[in-house]
């Protein structure tokens, strides 16, 4: 999984007035919470965090959050739980971080990417993609960014099921082993209209 580092500062001002003045000053209000820690309000630099989010592009990522406070600096590992964006200006309004432990297995949705053109499609078959993402359980850093599947060898009436996926050994696939991911089936052809009947009508 991708790892990025972000710097944040502890926030002491709360409410919409304080949040708006923060946004005007180029900062974004954020919050961090988790199962084993107390909730903490933060501020982030909007420009830098927006650039980081655009680089991630909605992929799974572990964020190393350097939190600066009066007591010093501490590092926490978090996932981006939610981001709020202004619908008109498309600017960042708020971010939610969920604290995780790098040693505790968690469940993640990982996208499945199909590579190549199936041989059966050239022969007139139709490619049916059933799964575009799978659930995988494992330590956050062991989770792959995506799972690539080569479908060039798929002929008509062939299918790739979940147990055929190339999953790393240290993670567990939570899908049904016989669940079809992608298949090539005989293409449905609409029956040709009978010209003779039309002429009679």
């Amino acid at each position: 999984m991708i790892q990025v580092d972000v710097t944040a500062t502890v926030r002491t001002n709360f409410g919409k007035g304080a949040a708006r003045s923060l946004r005007r000053a180029g900062q974004t209000p954020a919050i961090i919470y988790g199962p084993k820690s107390d909730t903490l309000a933060l501020t982030l630099d909007t420009k830098i965090f927006t650039k980081t989010l655009l680089d991630l592009h909605r992929r799974n990522a572990v964020v190393g959050l350097d939190i600066k406070s009066d007591g010093g600096e501490e590092k926490r590992h978090v996932l981006i739980k939610e981001i709020q964006v202004d619908p008109i200006l498309d600017t960042l309004k708020h971010a939610d971080f969920y604290e995780i432990s790098l040693d505790t297995p968690s469940v993640f949705k990982v996208p499945v990417k199909y590579k190549g053109k199936a041989a059966g499609v050239d022969l007139g078959g139709e490619l049916i993609t059933t799964l575009t993402e799978v659930s995988i359980k494992g330590n956050p850093l062991d989770i792959p960014d995506s799972i690539e599947v080569d479908i060039k060898s798929l002929n008509i009436n062939d299918a790739i099921v979940c147990k055929d996926l190339n999953i790393p050994d240290n993670v567990t696939l939570l899908e049904d082993q016989d669940q079809v991911c992608v298949s090539v089936v005989v293409a449905h052809v609409l029956p040709e209209s009978d010209d003779s009947e039309e002429e009679v009508e």
């Binding site: 655009l54 981001i83 964006v85 498309d90 960042l92």
Partner: peptide
């Protein structure tokens, strides 16, 4: 006009 690569 917005583009996917520059929008959150």
């Amino acid at each position: 006009v917005i583009t996917k690569s520059t929008t959150l």
